[in-house]
Write a protein that binds this DNA or RNA. Sequence first.
DNA 1: ATATTTCTGTTGTATTTACAACAAAAAGAG
DNA 2: CTCTTTTTGTTGTAAATACAACAGAAATAT
Lengths: 219, 219
Amino acid sequence: MKKYMDILKRTKLFSGISDENIKAMLGCLSATHKDFKKGEYIFRQGEYIDTICVLLSGSVHIQSDDYWGNRSIISEVCAGEMFGESYAVHGSTAVLNDAVATTDSVVAFFNLNKLMTVCSSACAFHSAVIQNLLIALTHKNRNLMQKLIHISKRTTREKLISYLSNQAKINSSNSFSIPFNRQQLADFLSVDRSAMSNELSKMRNEGLLTFDKNNFTLL
Amino acid sequence: MKKYMDILKRTKLFSGISDENIKAMLGCLSATHKDFKKGEYIFRQGEYIDTICVLLSGSVHIQSDDYWGNRSIISEVCAGEMFGESYAVHGSTAVLNDAVATTDSVVAFFNLNKLMTVCSSACAFHSAVIQNLLIALTHKNRNLMQKLIHISKRTTREKLISYLSNQAKINSSNSFSIPFNRQQLADFLSVDRSAMSNELSKMRNEGLLTFDKNNFTLL
DNA sequence: ATATTTCTGTTGTATTTACAACAAAAAGAG
DNA sequence: CTCTTTTTGTTGTAAATACAACAGAAATAT
């Protein structure tokens, strides 16, 4: 695990915590890690998990496939980001979605039970980690809310505008690249890929935007 | 605020904390409360808030209206539940949605900054509240995820089935009532009300379910 | 009790979407 | 480089949805 200290110290979970203390906590957290090949599942809908996951390298999609094979991509996880934390606290429910590696990945697993059950006043950085987790959860919440706003739009065009203008805002630029190919973007916005491609072309013809592969410019 | 102790002690935020300690904390939290008439806004999209909100009585909808007047209801808040907590922690962003009273309501406001900035090991119940907040946030997250799953469905019928069967699961019964009228349910599922009414009628004719006002039975 | 307002279901039409099929372009494998 | 696979854009058609208008039922106000 020590070879991943660089990435760990840059995570939201360990923000503001010294290398030394991070190392100390890896024991408290029963830290383990595991490699996943592209396409492998870290967890699946219906399972119960008791560890939070931190992506050390690679890329992971949180998604959910329904009975008819329609895929819905909830979010993309990048190296250094956390996932599964909403299910890993005691007394939780079955996981509602899949986590799948979209490239070869390494995932760390941390068990928070000790942090939560043992009096956390014991050491200051236990409280710090819990506070970090709290703040990370509020970020997750706001991201989910933002995605809800995108896919609550009634038409494909409105969904695209909602998503793309939000991306422009995040990147503080009218030109940006997105982490999805066309099929993935369609799965993210819950629309049909070909219809979406068609709508993008129309919007380009109308002079609303230009794009080349994953690079978009709003006009 | 003391007249609301009964409801406060039953909130997730103060779960497991004695009456005495709750009273003590109301000071730390700079607790205030305010009455809202039906239709009044507790906060609006774009505002910045620094207090979490706890509904002491009444009913609140978290929702978001777009430029064209389409409403999207994110969630219903019942007495004893919390809202706004994802925006009330330090360094947050503008609120993404409105909170509006759907009946005359009383809302308590708590400022968490002291809890978060002053070393929380100072008193054990500070840590307890933060842990409660953490758990509440994971619940919120799972609820948002569940709603995402509902509205990611491609057709009105699938959305209805997804939502109604989840309600049946939550109530552990095929018969249950929902907290929305038809327009509100349509706004919650991001579909047109009349089209949804139509679909409900079709489903009833096909023997999938029966309903009377807000009471549904899945068959 | 009566009048007014809100809620719900129904219908028809125009718009939008999903779906399928296909060709060109791009990416990847051997 | 050549062949294969994947990705993307395009088109036509069937299906689903939004929208508007309206009538009856239910709730609320006077």
